[in-house]
Amino acid sequence: MEVILNQLFVGLSIASILLLVALGLTFTFGQMNVINMAHGEFIMAGAYTTYVLQTALGTGFLTLSFGLALPAAFLIAGTLGLILEFLVIRRLYGRPLDTLLVTWGVGLMLQQLARDLFGAQNVNVSAPSFLDGGLTVAGVSLSYSRMFIIGVVLFVVVAIALYMQRTPAGRRMRAVMQNRPLASVSGVRTRVVDRTTFFIGSGLAGVAGVGITLLGPVGPTLGLAYLIDAFLVVIVGGLGQLRGAILAALALGMANSFIEYNTSASIAKAGVFLLIVLFLQWRPQGMVVQQRRGLAS
């Protein structure tokens, strides 16, 4: 029982990071048909932002620098996303596979930039003292840092849901996602909506990067491992679906956690992949599907 609860907690914390990374991907993919492979490097940018702030402010102000890192990483990664959109991606709308390759190249350059700036070795980011240690509830040890990450993700998910449901900007975003031409002729400035989505999505990757510093050292290739798993979350969840992304992140996080516990990390990876392919036999378009008209339209 304790084991199960423990793995549930681990699964939940894997899921929350995956979700944070996947949110940006699912919206840019669903709304603009853009596959942004540099998203992983935005995570890295967020992680290094934490590192830089911590180095600049010194170890006496860990809590302050960590608190500043969250909004700073959001802004930095978001701005990187905007620059990428402006310089490259807008030339490639309608060619999703090509955006994949181009942004991969951008990602490689960003990785090398990080290597040149911060060295090829991983760097360590210290957690603020209030995140040291943890609680033990019913024999399950809940580390504060993992609880903190889950908390941040909960906050983000609620904020995004409110943004999409309650604000005019969010409604425009949903309109563009469901029917771009119709939204466009109804007076929605789709370019602005696209840029906003890209900014927010990339910014969330930065926030994820801050969270990841709590889990281990930071290096130039940090983003890749999370990126592919997050794309799998998008595929399983269904394109552009908040609810789908949440469900899929939970499912993949739990599957990973439980298979890994019962076997090994390597079998967990292969096992989860197999489960995904099997799942797609049943629901090829993912958990949550939006109806669209096909060939004859």
Binding site: V102, V106, L108, Q112
Partner: peptide, 10 residues
């Protein structure tokens, strides 16, 4: 190499 991806595809 990164630039190669960008330039070739674009």
């Amino acid at each position: 190499q990164g630039l190669l991806f960008v330039v070739v595809i674009l």
